[in-house]
Amino acid sequence: MKKLLAIVSAALMLVSCGSVPEQKHTRTLFCMDTYMTLTAYGDKADEALRSACDAMEILDEEWSVTNPNSEIYAANHAEGKTVPISEETEHIIKFAKEISQQTDGALDITIFPVLQLWGFTTDNYRVPDDSEIQKLLESVDCSKIIADNGSLKLPSDMMLDLGSVAKGYAAKAAADVLKMNGIKSAILDLGGNIQTIGLKPDGSEWNIGIRDPGADGIVGTVSVEDRSVVTSGGYERFFTQDGVTYHHILDPKTGKPANNGFASVTIIGEDGVNCDALSTSLFIMGPDKAEEYWKQQGGFDYIGITDSGELILTKSIADSFKLDSDHMGVKMTFVE
């Protein structure tokens, strides 16, 4: 009898030690011109992830600049006529116009024709003449877009591209779907555009690396709960001609690759759409204007890496940020 008790209690101890962790589910997909990895925890996570992927694929179909069935393609080829758009398309265009105004034109979703001129849309890269750029810049002004009551009107000489805000919106939409399905813990990686839900299943914060714009690997790690972490940098898509490197983030004021002092900017905030739009905007602004903008608007944190490799970060994120062991000597400036 004693033996039996001992065996039973030993078995109980073993079972209690190995508490079952929440089930991890992962889905990957190619969507919005990027590779996405979505991970969620819980019994219903697989089903929820499938719905989240569906939601993003619908947005991709509506917003693609190359798919002739997309709303954006229709607007770009409507020769100035009005086209019908979905609620989310109207929503994101209104948002992009608002950010453009707030950032004094640092972000402009009508820069697309200039992007085409440089060959960034077709991969037939070339450095255009100033006169060519100036001519096209005349038709870059998103305040001229009219998106209202389910319809969109674009002047005939203008073209739209939601590339600078689409992934952020998709991440938010996917996160909303997951939350609606009862998911409490998830991490969505939309090609380096990161959205987290809640905490990790073990109750700790998510550790998000910040990519080193000048080398392989990361410069440091930021720990977050229920936040978006989005980085913009010129290192991903670029070409080199006569020893000069030209990247794909164009400054709407000059029509040329933004060259105002930042190699990358990471935004940490609650709203994925806002983070996506602001990472591009602050990258284009450069360190001084970015700081000024943050002081005026606030509501988010940022980590900027300058062309010379220095870090500029908001004081409020400093405690959550850890430098990578290879970057211990890096100069850090805090903004507050």
Binding site: I194, I210, R211, I218, T221, G233
Partner: peptide, 19 residues
């Protein structure tokens, strides 16, 4: 070419990398 190369298991303590 829909080609992806990635680590199968992650023991770095990183949950994702923004970039």
């Amino acid at each position: 070419n829909k080609l992806v190369i990635e680590y199968a298991d992650n023991d770095t303590g990183l949950d994702a990398v923004a970039g």
